[in-house]
């Protein structure tokens, strides 16, 4: 399902999964009586490392049947296969037999898709809505404010980046690339550095100052950022990126750029942000 979100001169750059299909992750599960559940859960939590995939959308426990002699029987998802060696998993679950199943890698966009993927994978997804699937809207005021910042850099003959606080509309950094002195001094890296420098100074004056990296800030750039800069924006936890030109060869945001990394929209990377491309010609 391909979606398009155009708001005035801004078009949202969606992530890789805007047209994703059902993906499957192999997992281990066991069947056990409900009475043993809490003990087993505590044991697993204690012993297993974190999952490499975000499986929060998967139902961990599935009720199987209730019989008079055995009581309630449950199916419990233990972990993804490959997280730890099979022998370790077997050791953890003791005498229970390990079964193999596959679960959906992604949260679905809609209730219908959720039901469909649950059926196709053979393991239920728990559907509590998916806020990420609701396309964001830019109010006319927000668009006007964003356009003013875009116009500030639109005529720059060098790659340039701004960091702006979208709540106060305050400019926090305005930097151009300086690759002659240091090949990694791209505009985005320098802008992040400038915000950090500013915050270190603020802390000197007021140790209570508590800004965290570039959390929720807007970043404006002339060009779609490269892999290094895009990941730097993930590490810096920005809220929104707005750029003018797509970088078809080195860009790491737009899934249609050659690398097709879509780094702004990979939940596995702990942080995602919104991206808009500005179309000068409306």
């Amino acid at each position: 399902m391909v979606r398009i979100n155009r708001q005035g001169k801004f078009q949202q750059v969606l992530g890789l999964d805007a047209s994703r299909q059902l993906g499957l992750v192999p997992v281990w599960y066991i069947e056990l009586p409900a009475t043993e559940l809490s003990g087993m859960l505590a044991k697993l939590k204690e012993s297993l490392p974190a999952e490499p995939f975000d499986l929060a959308h998967i139902r961990r426990i599935v009720k199987l049947e209730t019989s008079e002699d055995k009581g309630i029987l449950l199916r419990l998802l233990v972990c993804s296969q490959g997280l730890v060696p099979e022998s370790t998993v077997q050791e953890l679950v003791g005498s229970h037999k390990l079964h193999s199943a596959r679960v959906s890698k992604y949260q679905a966009d809609t209730k219908e898709e959720s039901a469909q993927w649950s059926q196709e994978s053979g393991w239920p997804i728990s559907w509590r809505g998916n806020p990420a699937a609701v396309l964001p809207v830019l109010s006319p005021e927000t668009q006007k404010q964003m356009e003013e910042w875009v116009e500030r850099i639109a005529k720059s003959d060098r790659v340039r980046a701004l960091v702006v606080n979208p709540i106060t509309n305050e400019l926090l950094a305005d930097e151009c690339e300086q690759k002659t002195t240091h090949p990694l001094n791209h505009a985005v890296m320098r802008a992040i550095q400038a915000v950090a420098e500013r915050e270190r100074q603020a802390k000197r004056g007021n140790p209570e100052s508590e800004n965290y990296l570039c959390l929720d800030m807007d970043v404006y750039t002339t060009d779609e950022p490269c892999t290094m800069c895009s990941m730097a924006l993930v590490h810096s936890r920005i809220g929104r990126l707005i750029y003018i030109r797509q970088s078809t060869v080195s860009g790491a945001i737009d899934p249609r750029s050659q690398l097709s990394y879509g780094l702004h929209g990979r939940p596995q990377l702990n942080h995602t942000f919104q991206v808009w491309q500005y179309h000068l010609e409306g």
């Binding site: 490499p52 090949p183 990694l184 892999t227 290094m228 800069c229 990941m231 790491a252 596995q268 990377l269």
Partner: peptide, 28 residues
Amino acid sequence: PCIMCASALRQLEIKVVYFGAANDRFGG
């Protein structure tokens, strides 16, 4: 190296990288 550093090293054309632990969250 994370994705950012992996790209930075490639832009500098580093010869070879040896590393210890995998970086499941951000590894590039």
